[in-house]
Nucleic acid binder design. Structure first.
Lengths: 114, 114
DNA sequence: CATAGTACCTTGTACAACAAGGTACCTGGT
DNA sequence: ACCAGGTACCTTGTTGTACAAGGTACTATG
């Protein structure tokens, strides 16, 4: 039997996880961003994400052609991959924002049913 | 390369999935409910869930002592397991509702950052 | 030229949803 | 007495995903 705090935080993490891709698309939608920019934005929004999660996720979004990147040299370190949304990515993001609103309504419906 | 509609609906499903446990706790919080009640409530809130997902999930919530059930005979068919929230389950639900609000804020923060 | 800092990536693990298939109970018709 | 249909519960196998941990490589600085 796991301690109850752990159970709660697992469920919180689970809720957060489902929104990850959506949030990352949102974070990129502002314009060009590389991994540290994205991590920082998510952290500023209180959504903790680690590198090991972000990189495969960006690769996936890339494979689905929702984002594209180009290399840019940095003044302090190795070159960076700057990501931006493709046209297709922008359309998808609009779609997901709609989905988000629908989910919000669903929760309210369930809460009101009480 | 998968068709773009499929990509979008996978992402929608992913968002929905993270909220499943939360929604099921919400659906039960109204009082006693058995599987068909729960499925109906979720469907009414436009959240499609199938049996094969619900049963293991209820077992998990039971193992975590967030819900409890008792058997009740039905007038038309086999007996049913009626679920209700335990005290611990009600506390957890309050916690998750708070988490939900925090996530909502996070999304807004990301949207506003544009 | 070694160290520290930054950036990218991969591998292995654990867990969850879902599809599909299975068991068992009750009722009503023949 | 039996079987067909509806209802309810459950299990197994597959697939996908986040995450921890560890690894490579480039740049600047002392």
């Amino acid at each position: 039997m796991k301690p109850s705090d752990e159970i709660v935080s697992e469920k919180k993490a689970q809720m957060r996880r489902g929104l990850l891709e959506f949030c990352i698309l949102l974070a990129i939608s502002d314009g060009r961003a590389y991994s540290s920019d994205i991590l920082k934005k998510l952290k500023d929004a209180d959504l903790l994400v680690v590198e090991g999660t972000l990189y495969p996720l960006l690769s996936r979004l890339r494979a689905q052609e929702l984002v594209a990147y180009d290399w840019e040299e940095s003044k302090s370190g190795p070159p960076r991959k700057y990501y931006e949304l493709t046209r297709h990515g922008r359309e998808t993001l609009l779609n997901l924002q709609k989905t988000w609103k629908e989910l919000h309504r669903s929760i309210i419906t369930l809460e009101d049913a009480k």
